[in-house]
């Protein structure tokens, strides 16, 4: 290439409508490809560079700050209707890098990489000294709370036996000693009232996911469990993923559009919410 040609990027305002349009396409892409955790919403556009692309088009480099919402990725609620997780609930932010190609006025995501991290304990304490912080998901009290809550939910279920899909977040409170958990579930081919060996139950071909919030409170001589689950509309049967080794239970947050995507059967498509059941 001749020196000095084609190597200059266009500096665009971060709040320019064109930048915001690119950012929105990027956010839609992230939320459509997340397979775990919660949907994220745009908080701030950090940087934007627009490079000329030969023979035609432009390449947008974007850095975005996002915030976690309270909608699980399996929840079909449009992200625009999802509430941002508040600081007092121990907010989680995302730091994303994108490259998008703009051709004929249309954006296409070429690269996306997001890392999420919870707010610091100090910051949470500043706004709410007594608020419980996020707890490790493998904490024994968290695991126990999820198991007890799922058992309580299944005991009340007149239909399918539900399996755990993912523990999404947990908080431990000292007074009264209690554990708050949020987790995703999926219906199996077993009947809840007749299950003897849950390991033999299989997820339905037509996936039916749910999302549960539960609190286990320790008390003298026992414990109380309160659980509420929202069951979403069934997901249509779609082809299974290719045997490329990418079909893992816990997908990476980094998303490479050039690589084959993990099981699309796990992605939400429905828009109607059924429930809550309990």
């Amino acid at each position: 290439a001749p020196p000095g040609l084609g190597l200059v990027y266009r500096e665009l305002n971060c709040d320019d409508p064109e930048t915001e349009e690119a950012a929105q396409v990027a956010m839609d892409y992230v939320n459509a490809h997340l397979l775990q955790g919660y949907k994220h919403i745009l908080n701030q556009i950090d940087k934007v560079k627009v490079w000329p692309r030969r023979p035609t088009g432009e390449l947008f480099e974007l850095e975005l700050d996002t915030l976690e919402t309270i909608c699980h990725v399996l929840d079909p609620t449009p992200v625009a209707n999802c509430t941002v997780r508040q600081l007092t609930e121990h907010a989680v932010e995302g730091d994303c890098d994108f490259r998008l190609l703009k051709l004929d006025g249309q954006f296409a995501v070429l690269f996306a990489n997001c890392d999420s991290s919870p707010d610091s304990a100090e910051d949470v304490r500043k706004v709410c000294p007594d608020c419980p912080l996020l707890a490790p998901l493998n904490d024994t009290r968290v695991v126990h709370a999820v198991e007890a809550a799922l058992a309580a939910f299944n005991a009340q279920s007149n239909g399918s036996y539900y399996q755990i899909v993912e523990v999404s977040r947990a908080q431990l409170a000292p007074l009264p000693p209690s554990t708050y958990v949020e987790f995703a579930v999926a219906a199996t081919d077993c009947v809840a009232k007749e299950v003897t060996d849950p390991a033999k139950c299989n997820l339905l071909a037509e996936k039916q996911y749910g999302f549960c919030k539960a609190t286990l409170t320790e008390k003298f001589g026992g414990e109380d469990v309160a659980v509420t689950c929202t069951v979403f509309q069934t997901q249509p049967v779609v082809p299974q993923p290719q045997p490329d080794g990418n079909n893992v239970a816990v997908p990476p947050l980094a998303v490479d559009p050039a690589a084959p995507q993990p099981a699309p059967a796990n992605l939400p498509a429905a828009v109607r919410v059924v429930g809550p059941l309990v």
Binding site: N13, I41, D46, L87
Partner: peptide, 27 residues
């Protein structure tokens, strides 16, 4: 002939192209 700097008025608001506005809150 008096040579000097032209008087400067109050500076206008500085427009910073990036980062953009915060939509919710900053962590």
């Amino acid at each position: 002939v008096v040579v000097g700097l032209a008087p400067t008025g109050p500076a206008g608001p500085v427009v910073r192209p990036c980062p953009g506005r915060i939509r919710h809150f900053k962590i």
